[in-house]
Structures are given as C-alpha cells and as structure tokens.
Simulated scan of single mutants.
Amino acid sequence: MPNGHITHVFLDECGHSMEPEALVPLSGLVGRDTQVVLAGDPHQLGPVIRNPQCFSSYSLFKNCGLDKSYLERVMESAPYQPQPGQGFNAQVVTKLLNNYRSHAAILKEPNDIFYNSELKVMAVVVVGLG
C-alpha cells in the first residue's frame, strides 16, 4: 500500500487491550496524517494478565505493566483530562452518557463510583417478561 493510503483506524474496545496488542497492528499502517480513534471505556474490564510479573506493581515494570490498557494510559495524559468548569476537550474526547442497556438499579453503583453520576438511564423497562 502506498504511504497515506489508510486515513482512519478505529480500535474498538481499546480499554480491554494491552498496549502491545493495540500498537503492533498500527505499526507500519499509520502515517503522519492517519487518524487513530480509540473507542472503549477505561472503567470497564481491563486487560487480562495471567503472569503476575507483568503487573505494574511488579518491580520489573514500575507502574508501566501490561495491566494498564492503551486507552487508560492515553487518557491519563493532559490533552485527554477534563478541564475545570469546561469538561473534556470535544476535539479529542467524546463521552457517551446515555445508557440504553442497564436497569437503573444495576447502573447506580458504577455510575456513582466511576462516572460522577453523569450516566443517564435510557433503557426501556419491559413488564411481563419472564
């Protein structure tokens, strides 16, 4: 493929991917003008690590282990942090707030703990099933 052929790359569920899993497929594909979109939720299921030596708490990695997803690490950098009184920069972060899949009682705890009570319950309650 000629340089610049790929203009956009979407990495879905990037909150679940280890950094090498996310970056290796990009190497050699993206150019200077390629837009890379990371989609996912860093508050949901993170990378699954079976070897304890790969955790950030292990002395080998010192807070840079494979247990932190690529999306989570990127979201810690300045351009992706909310600004006081302004929220996220809409040019780099889109935060989806309407939840269509969960009952209000199920969503309450994670909404309070991880999302500053910003999620809105939009699920339709179906009566009489079961």
Rank of each mutant, 00 (worst) to 15 (best):
F114W: 02
A78S: 12
S117D: 11
K68T: 10
T7H: 13
L23W: 02
K62T: 04
P2M: 07
I106W: 02
A90Y: 04
R101L: 00
G31N: 01
E21G: 12
E72V: 01
C64A: 13
M75P: 03
M1P: 07
D33M: 05
S57L: 05
V30D: 13
Y115F: 13
V125T: 11
S117L: 02
G130F: 04
C14I: 07
L26C: 12
V121T: 11
V48P: 02
V127S: 10
H43E: 06
Q81N: 14
L23N: 07
Y80I: 03
Q86H: 15
I6C: 08
G31R: 01
A90L: 10
E109A: 10
Q86W: 05
F55H: 08
I113C: 08
C54G: 01
G40I: 01
A22K: 03
V9S: 09
M75H: 05
F88W: 14
F114G: 07
I106Q: 08
L45S: 04
R101S: 01
M1K: 05
Y70W: 13
M1A: 08
V92D: 13
S27W: 03
E118T: 11
P110C: 07
A78R: 09
F61S: 08
E76F: 06
Q35D: 13
G65R: 01
Q83W: 06
H8Q: 14
V125Q: 09
A22G: 14
R101I: 00
P25W: 03
Q81S: 13
L60V: 13
E13M: 15
S77R: 15
V24L: 15
T7G: 12
N89I: 00
G87P: 01
L107S: 11
A39V: 15
P79D: 12
V126M: 06
E13A: 15
Y115C: 02
G40V: 01
L26R: 06
A22F: 13
R50S: 02
H8G: 07
G128C: 13
G31S: 11
K68V: 09
M1V: 09
